[in-house]
């Protein structure tokens, strides 16, 4: 159980790292899809079939939209700028070393704070359902919905769903406003 999750998470990390370093943007997007589809398997292992069925279709549609963006624009990544070329000789950019140093320091601090925070977390598999105890006990009689996630989403916490629908509508309006503007020719 936990071993499966660890394998899935390592696959996700590898996919994300390759997506960020790929030379071709199309292969970057395919590696990004590896992250999303591994998340589907993770949700299935964690006994969340609702999330799995939503994530697998969302990932497919996101992939289609990303590929359609790449078809309009370009596939090639930017040129690498790790080295400076002066008079035919290449030098390592000194700023990159400073960036790596700062990244290591920041990562150290973040992991330290994560260690402090996670002392209050329960270990995996042990969870005390505080609010959800009521939902699980009386959910079927109270809402009539056998699927507890739908019952929580549309009955107990309907305002969250209303806010979600509003955000979705606003995002669509934003996309239409951005893409439908007639550009001035430069």
């Amino acid at each position: 159980m936990e071993t499966t999750l660890i394998v899935i998470l390592i696959l996700m990390i590898a996919g994300a790292l390759h997506a960020l370093h790929a030379r071709d943007l199309l292969s970057a997007i395919v590696s990004y899809a590896v992250v999303g589809y591994s998340l589907v398997v993770g949700f299935l292992v964690l006994k969340a079939p609702d999330l799995a069925i939503v994530q697998i279709v969302v990932e497919t549609i996101a992939l289609i939209i990303m590929v359609s963006v790449l078809i309009i624009s370009t596939r090639e990544d930017l040129a690498k700028r790790d080295t400076i070329i002066i008079k035919g000789q290449s030098y390592i950019n000194v700023r990159n070393l400073a960036y790596i140093f700062f990244a290591v320091v920041a990562g150290f601090f973040l992991v330290y704070f994560f260690n402090m925070v996670s002392s209050g977390l329960e270990p995996l598999g042990v969870h005390e359902t505080r609010m959800a105890t009521e939902y699980i006990k009386n959910g079927v009689e109270g809402t009539g919905s056998v699927n507890l996630v739908t019952g929580v989403l549309l009955d107990y916490r309907g305002f969250d769903t209303l806010g979600e629908a509003t955000i979705l509508f606003t995002a669509v309006m934003g996309i239409l406003a951005i893409l439908r503007l007639k550009t001035h020719k430069i």
Binding site: A48, V58, A62, M66, V152, A171
Partner: peptide, 24 residues
Amino acid sequence: VDPLPQAFVLTAIVIGLATTALLL
């Protein structure tokens, strides 16, 4: 298992798709 985080994540996934499309 706890249904409450699953209900939150369910809405967050769809919003994530919409915001990704907005960024694109």
